[in-house]
Design a protein around this nucleic acid. Structure first.
Lengths: 161, 161
DNA sequence: TATTGTTATACTCTATAACTATA
DNA sequence: TATAGTTATAGAGTATAACAATA
Protein backbone atom coordinates (compact mmCIF):
# COMPACT_ATOMS: atom_id res chain seq x y z
CA UNK A 1 0.00 0.00 0.00
CA UNK A 2 1.24 3.44 -0.88
CA UNK A 3 -0.09 6.40 1.00
CA UNK A 4 1.14 8.75 -1.69
CA UNK A 5 -1.75 8.32 -4.06
CA UNK A 6 -4.57 10.29 -2.45
CA UNK A 7 -2.93 13.57 -3.28
CA UNK A 8 -4.60 16.85 -3.90
CA UNK A 9 -2.02 19.57 -4.52
CA UNK A 10 1.67 19.75 -5.22
CA UNK A 11 4.60 22.02 -4.64
CA UNK A 12 7.70 22.34 -6.81
CA UNK A 13 11.07 22.55 -5.06
CA UNK A 14 14.61 21.37 -5.86
CA UNK A 15 13.61 20.49 -9.43
CA UNK A 16 11.14 18.04 -8.05
CA UNK A 17 7.47 17.99 -7.19
CA UNK A 18 6.23 17.21 -3.71
CA UNK A 19 2.83 16.20 -2.54
CA UNK A 20 0.96 17.57 0.46
CA UNK A 21 -1.11 14.42 0.93
CA UNK A 22 -4.50 15.22 2.44
CA UNK A 23 -3.33 18.52 3.92
CA UNK A 24 -4.82 20.67 1.13
CA UNK A 25 -8.26 19.21 1.82
CA UNK A 26 -8.15 20.60 5.36
CA UNK A 27 -9.52 24.06 6.07
CA UNK A 28 -7.34 24.19 9.18
CA UNK A 29 -4.20 23.79 7.08
CA UNK A 30 -5.06 26.82 4.97
CA UNK A 31 -6.20 28.83 7.98
CA UNK A 32 -2.85 28.21 9.65
CA UNK A 33 -0.89 29.28 6.61
CA UNK A 34 -2.95 32.37 5.94
CA UNK A 35 -2.69 33.41 9.58
CA UNK A 36 1.07 32.82 9.57
CA UNK A 37 1.38 34.95 6.45
CA UNK A 38 -0.61 37.68 8.18
CA UNK A 39 1.71 37.57 11.19
CA UNK A 40 4.89 37.47 9.20
CA UNK A 41 4.01 40.45 7.02
CA UNK A 42 2.53 42.49 9.87
CA UNK A 43 5.82 44.06 11.04
CA UNK A 44 6.73 45.03 7.47
CA UNK A 45 3.85 47.46 7.33
CA UNK A 46 4.05 48.59 10.96
CA UNK A 47 7.77 49.16 10.98
CA UNK A 48 8.24 48.58 14.71
CA UNK A 49 8.79 44.89 15.26
CA UNK A 50 7.84 45.09 18.92
CA UNK A 51 4.27 46.04 18.00
CA UNK A 52 2.63 42.68 17.49
CA UNK A 53 -0.94 42.02 16.39
CA UNK A 54 -1.82 41.19 19.97
CA UNK A 55 -0.38 44.40 21.34
CA UNK A 56 -2.13 46.38 18.67
CA UNK A 57 -5.43 44.69 19.52
CA UNK A 58 -4.99 45.69 23.17
CA UNK A 59 -4.65 49.34 22.21
CA UNK A 60 -7.63 49.04 19.90
CA UNK A 61 -9.91 47.55 22.57
CA UNK A 62 -8.88 50.11 25.18
CA UNK A 63 -9.55 52.87 22.66
CA UNK A 64 -13.00 51.44 22.00
CA UNK A 65 -13.78 50.87 25.69
CA UNK A 66 -12.13 53.64 27.69
CA UNK A 67 -11.58 52.77 31.33
CA UNK A 68 -12.37 49.08 31.13
CA UNK A 69 -10.76 46.93 33.83
CA UNK A 70 -7.73 44.80 33.12
CA UNK A 71 -9.71 41.62 33.73
CA UNK A 72 -12.34 42.79 31.28
CA UNK A 73 -9.71 43.53 28.70
CA UNK A 74 -8.24 40.07 29.24
CA UNK A 75 -11.66 38.44 28.82
CA UNK A 76 -12.51 40.37 25.66
CA UNK A 77 -9.28 39.32 23.95
CA UNK A 78 -9.01 35.86 25.49
CA UNK A 79 -5.82 36.69 27.35
CA UNK A 80 -4.57 35.24 30.61
CA UNK A 81 -4.12 37.62 33.55
CA UNK A 82 -0.33 37.78 33.16
CA UNK A 83 -0.63 38.33 29.42
CA UNK A 84 -2.91 41.31 30.02
CA UNK A 85 -0.55 42.71 32.63
CA UNK A 86 2.42 42.43 30.31
CA UNK A 87 0.65 43.94 27.30
CA UNK A 88 -0.48 46.92 29.38
CA UNK A 89 3.03 47.25 30.80
CA UNK A 90 4.33 47.44 27.25
CA UNK A 91 2.08 50.36 26.28
CA UNK A 92 2.44 52.09 29.63
CA UNK A 93 6.21 52.15 29.19
CA UNK A 94 5.58 53.91 25.88
CA UNK A 95 3.21 56.42 27.49
CA UNK A 96 0.29 55.14 25.43
CA UNK A 97 -1.79 53.56 28.20
CA UNK A 98 -2.38 54.50 31.82
CA UNK A 99 -3.85 52.59 34.76
CA UNK A 100 -6.24 54.40 37.10
CA UNK A 101 -7.55 53.18 40.44
CA UNK A 102 -11.30 52.82 40.54
CA UNK A 103 -12.97 54.70 43.41
CA UNK A 104 -15.56 51.92 43.77
CA UNK A 105 -13.02 49.05 44.01
CA UNK A 106 -9.48 49.56 45.20
CA UNK A 107 -8.33 46.26 43.71
CA UNK A 108 -9.25 47.04 40.13
CA UNK A 109 -7.57 49.37 37.64
CA UNK A 110 -9.25 51.03 34.72
CA UNK A 111 -7.18 51.26 31.56
CA UNK A 112 -7.13 54.43 29.49
CA UNK A 113 -5.42 55.77 26.39
CA UNK A 114 -3.11 58.68 27.05
CA UNK A 115 -3.05 61.55 24.62
CA UNK A 116 0.00 60.01 23.00
CA UNK A 117 -1.81 56.66 22.94
CA UNK A 118 -4.67 58.19 20.99
CA UNK A 119 -2.30 59.51 18.37
CA UNK A 120 -0.45 56.22 18.19
CA UNK A 121 -3.69 54.30 17.80
CA UNK A 122 -4.92 56.55 15.01
CA UNK A 123 -1.67 55.98 13.14
CA UNK A 124 -1.62 52.25 13.85
CA UNK A 125 -5.18 51.84 12.65
CA UNK A 126 -4.26 53.18 9.26
CA UNK A 127 -1.20 50.99 8.98
CA UNK A 128 -3.02 47.86 10.12
CA UNK A 129 -5.92 48.51 7.75
CA UNK A 130 -3.40 48.94 4.93
CA UNK A 131 -1.67 45.71 5.91
CA UNK A 132 -4.94 43.81 6.02
CA UNK A 133 -5.88 45.21 2.64
CA UNK A 134 -2.56 44.08 1.22
CA UNK A 135 -3.02 40.62 2.70
CA UNK A 136 -6.31 40.27 0.84
CA UNK A 137 -5.27 42.20 -2.25
CA UNK A 138 -6.00 39.24 -4.51
CA UNK A 139 -9.63 39.06 -3.37
CA UNK A 140 -12.63 40.89 -4.76
CA UNK A 141 -14.72 42.95 -2.36
CA UNK A 142 -17.31 40.26 -2.55
CA UNK A 143 -14.82 37.55 -1.66
CA UNK A 144 -13.51 39.62 1.21
CA UNK A 145 -17.01 40.06 2.57
CA UNK A 146 -17.84 36.38 2.19
CA UNK A 147 -14.58 35.36 3.84
CA UNK A 148 -15.35 37.50 6.85
CA UNK A 149 -18.82 36.03 7.26
CA UNK A 150 -17.61 32.46 6.88
CA UNK A 151 -14.73 32.91 9.32
CA UNK A 152 -17.15 34.34 11.88
CA UNK A 153 -19.34 31.31 11.45
CA UNK A 154 -16.41 29.06 12.23
CA UNK A 155 -15.42 31.09 15.27
CA UNK A 156 -18.91 31.19 16.70
CA UNK A 157 -19.39 27.53 15.95
CA UNK A 158 -22.55 27.79 13.94
CA UNK A 159 -24.48 30.32 16.03
CA UNK A 160 -23.32 33.21 13.86
CA UNK A 161 -25.34 35.19 11.32
CA UNK B 1 -12.34 63.03 20.08
CA UNK B 2 -13.47 59.61 21.12
CA UNK B 3 -12.02 56.59 19.46
CA UNK B 4 -14.88 54.44 20.62
CA UNK B 5 -17.33 55.42 17.94
CA UNK B 6 -16.13 53.59 14.86
CA UNK B 7 -17.24 50.26 16.23
CA UNK B 8 -18.34 47.30 14.27
CA UNK B 9 -19.17 44.40 16.59
CA UNK B 10 -19.66 43.90 20.28
CA UNK B 11 -19.17 41.27 22.90
CA UNK B 12 -21.18 40.84 26.10
CA UNK B 13 -19.27 40.05 29.30
CA UNK B 14 -19.71 40.89 33.00
CA UNK B 15 -23.22 42.26 32.37
CA UNK B 16 -21.70 44.79 30.04
CA UNK B 17 -21.05 45.18 26.35
CA UNK B 18 -17.60 45.72 24.95
CA UNK B 19 -16.53 46.99 21.61
CA UNK B 20 -13.82 45.52 19.39
CA UNK B 21 -13.12 48.81 17.61
CA UNK B 22 -11.89 48.22 14.08
CA UNK B 23 -10.74 44.67 14.80
CA UNK B 24 -13.84 43.01 13.30
CA UNK B 25 -13.19 44.75 10.00
CA UNK B 26 -9.82 43.00 9.70
CA UNK B 27 -9.59 39.66 7.94
CA UNK B 28 -6.39 38.96 9.87
CA UNK B 29 -8.25 39.23 13.17
CA UNK B 30 -10.72 36.55 12.14
CA UNK B 31 -8.04 34.37 10.59
CA UNK B 32 -6.14 34.42 13.85
CA UNK B 33 -9.15 33.48 15.91
CA UNK B 34 -10.27 30.73 13.58
CA UNK B 35 -6.78 29.28 13.47
CA UNK B 36 -6.50 29.43 17.25
CA UNK B 37 -9.82 27.62 17.54
CA UNK B 38 -8.52 24.97 15.16
CA UNK B 39 -5.38 24.50 17.25
CA UNK B 40 -7.16 24.45 20.57
CA UNK B 41 -9.71 21.82 19.51
CA UNK B 42 -7.21 19.65 17.63
CA UNK B 43 -6.04 17.63 20.66
CA UNK B 44 -9.63 16.93 21.70
CA UNK B 45 -10.19 14.88 18.58
CA UNK B 46 -6.72 13.35 18.41
CA UNK B 47 -6.53 12.36 22.04
CA UNK B 48 -2.75 12.48 22.30
CA UNK B 49 -1.76 16.02 23.23
CA UNK B 50 1.79 15.53 21.99
CA UNK B 51 0.59 15.10 18.42
CA UNK B 52 0.37 18.67 17.19
CA UNK B 53 -0.88 19.86 13.80
CA UNK B 54 2.73 20.40 12.77
CA UNK B 55 3.81 16.90 13.76
CA UNK B 56 0.83 15.43 11.97
CA UNK B 57 1.69 17.40 8.85
CA UNK B 58 5.21 15.98 8.92
CA UNK B 59 3.86 12.44 8.93
CA UNK B 60 1.44 13.33 6.17
CA UNK B 61 4.12 14.78 3.89
CA UNK B 62 6.48 11.85 4.44
CA UNK B 63 3.63 9.48 3.66
CA UNK B 64 2.95 11.35 0.43
CA UNK B 65 6.64 11.61 -0.55
CA UNK B 66 8.40 8.48 0.66
CA UNK B 67 12.14 8.91 1.05
CA UNK B 68 12.31 12.66 0.68
CA UNK B 69 15.32 14.32 2.31
CA UNK B 70 15.04 16.16 5.58
CA UNK B 71 15.88 19.45 3.91
CA UNK B 72 13.15 18.85 1.37
CA UNK B 73 10.67 18.08 4.10
CA UNK B 74 11.67 21.28 5.87
CA UNK B 75 11.24 23.32 2.68
CA UNK B 76 7.84 21.82 1.85
CA UNK B 77 6.45 22.69 5.27
CA UNK B 78 8.38 25.90 5.81
CA UNK B 79 10.33 24.51 8.75
CA UNK B 80 13.78 25.46 9.92
CA UNK B 81 16.46 22.76 9.90
CA UNK B 82 16.29 22.21 13.67
CA UNK B 83 12.48 22.08 13.58
CA UNK B 84 12.61 19.34 10.95
CA UNK B 85 15.20 17.42 12.95
CA UNK B 86 13.10 17.60 16.11
CA UNK B 87 9.86 16.63 14.39
CA UNK B 88 11.51 13.60 12.80
CA UNK B 89 13.09 12.72 16.16
CA UNK B 90 9.61 12.76 17.67
CA UNK B 91 8.20 10.25 15.20
CA UNK B 92 11.35 8.14 15.13
CA UNK B 93 11.12 7.72 18.91
CA UNK B 94 7.60 6.38 18.31
CA UNK B 95 8.77 4.01 15.58
CA UNK B 96 6.71 5.80 12.96
CA UNK B 97 9.51 7.31 10.87
CA UNK B 98 12.97 6.08 9.93
CA UNK B 99 16.00 7.82 8.48
CA UNK B 100 17.97 6.08 5.76
CA UNK B 101 21.35 7.08 4.33
CA UNK B 102 21.28 7.88 0.64
CA UNK B 103 23.82 5.96 -1.44
CA UNK B 104 24.29 8.98 -3.72
CA UNK B 105 25.00 11.46 -0.93
CA UNK B 106 26.35 10.47 2.46
CA UNK B 107 25.31 13.73 4.05
CA UNK B 108 21.62 13.42 3.34
CA UNK B 109 19.01 11.16 4.93
CA UNK B 110 15.82 10.00 3.30
CA UNK B 111 12.80 9.87 5.57
CA UNK B 112 10.39 6.95 5.41
CA UNK B 113 7.27 5.75 7.16
CA UNK B 114 7.71 2.55 9.11
CA UNK B 115 4.99 -0.05 9.03
CA UNK B 116 3.74 1.30 12.33
CA UNK B 117 3.94 4.80 10.91
CA UNK B 118 1.67 3.83 8.03
CA UNK B 119 -0.93 2.53 10.42
CA UNK B 120 -0.63 5.57 12.63
CA UNK B 121 -1.00 7.89 9.65
CA UNK B 122 -4.10 6.11 8.38
CA UNK B 123 -5.70 6.49 11.78
CA UNK B 124 -4.57 10.09 12.20
CA UNK B 125 -5.93 11.03 8.81
CA UNK B 126 -9.40 9.94 9.80
CA UNK B 127 -9.24 11.79 13.10
CA UNK B 128 -7.87 14.97 11.55
CA UNK B 129 -10.48 14.92 8.77
CA UNK B 130 -13.17 14.50 11.43
CA UNK B 131 -11.75 17.39 13.41
CA UNK B 132 -11.61 19.62 10.37
CA UNK B 133 -15.17 18.70 9.52
CA UNK B 134 -16.26 19.61 13.05
CA UNK B 135 -14.44 22.92 12.84
CA UNK B 136 -16.43 23.84 9.76
CA UNK B 137 -19.66 22.14 10.78
CA UNK B 138 -21.59 25.38 10.53
CA UNK B 139 -20.66 25.84 6.87
CA UNK B 140 -22.41 24.52 3.81
CA UNK B 141 -20.38 22.46 1.35
CA UNK B 142 -20.44 25.45 -0.93
CA UNK B 143 -19.09 27.76 1.75
CA UNK B 144 -16.39 25.28 2.65
CA UNK B 145 -15.30 25.06 -0.96
CA UNK B 146 -15.31 28.83 -1.37
CA UNK B 147 -13.38 29.31 1.84
CA UNK B 148 -10.67 26.96 0.66
CA UNK B 149 -10.31 28.75 -2.65
CA UNK B 150 -10.20 32.18 -1.06
CA UNK B 151 -7.67 31.16 1.59
CA UNK B 152 -5.44 29.77 -1.13
CA UNK B 153 -5.64 33.04 -2.96
CA UNK B 154 -4.45 34.85 0.14
CA UNK B 155 -1.61 32.42 0.69
CA UNK B 156 -0.40 32.57 -2.89
CA UNK B 157 -0.74 36.32 -2.90
CA UNK B 158 -2.90 36.67 -5.92
CA UNK B 159 -1.22 34.21 -8.29
CA UNK B 160 -3.62 31.44 -7.36
CA UNK B 161 -6.60 30.16 -9.32
C1' DT C 1 34.60 25.84 0.31
C1' DA C 2 29.57 24.54 0.37
C1' DT C 3 25.89 21.53 2.05
C1' DT C 4 23.23 18.01 5.16
C1' DG C 5 21.94 17.39 9.36
C1' DT C 6 22.70 17.82 14.63
C1' DT C 7 23.46 20.23 18.74
C1' DA C 8 23.72 24.34 21.71
C1' DT C 9 21.83 28.54 22.97
C1' DA C 10 18.81 32.14 23.49
C1' DC C 11 14.43 34.41 23.00
C1' DT C 12 9.53 34.75 22.84
C1' DC C 13 4.95 33.11 24.43
C1' DT C 14 2.19 30.93 27.28
C1' DA C 15 0.32 28.77 31.42
C1' DT C 16 0.37 28.02 36.38
C1' DA C 17 0.81 29.17 40.71
C1' DA C 18 2.29 32.06 44.54
C1' DC C 19 1.79 36.43 46.24
C1' DT C 20 -0.30 41.44 47.55
C1' DA C 21 -3.88 44.32 48.36
C1' DT C 22 -8.25 44.97 48.71
C1' DA C 23 -13.15 43.44 49.41
C1' DT D 1 -12.80 33.67 52.01
C1' DA D 2 -12.84 35.53 47.27
C1' DT D 3 -11.23 38.70 43.66
C1' DA D 4 -7.92 42.12 40.87
C1' DG D 5 -3.73 42.39 39.57
C1' DT D 6 1.44 41.33 39.89
C1' DT D 7 5.38 38.56 40.01
C1' DA D 8 7.97 34.19 39.65
C1' DT D 9 8.79 30.14 37.26
C1' DA D 10 8.71 26.69 34.08
C1' DG D 11 7.44 24.74 29.57
C1' DA D 12 6.80 24.77 24.46
C1' DG D 13 8.11 26.65 20.11
C1' DT D 14 11.22 29.08 17.21
C1' DA D 15 15.44 31.08 15.34
C1' DT D 16 20.45 31.51 15.02
C1' DA D 17 24.77 29.96 15.07
C1' DA D 18 28.37 26.60 15.88
C1' DC D 19 29.59 22.12 14.73
C1' DA D 20 30.58 17.32 12.41
C1' DA D 21 30.41 14.73 8.36
C1' DT D 22 30.46 14.61 3.61
C1' DA D 23 30.74 16.56 -0.98
Amino acid sequence: MTLATQSDAKIALFDRTFDYGQLPSLIGFHLRRASLLDFSTFPEEIGDRSITPLRYSVLEVVGANPGLRQMQLAAVLGLSKPAATLAIDFWEARNCLSRRRLPEDGRARGVHLTEEGEGTLIELRKQVARHDRALTASLSDDERRTLQIVLRKIIEGGDAN
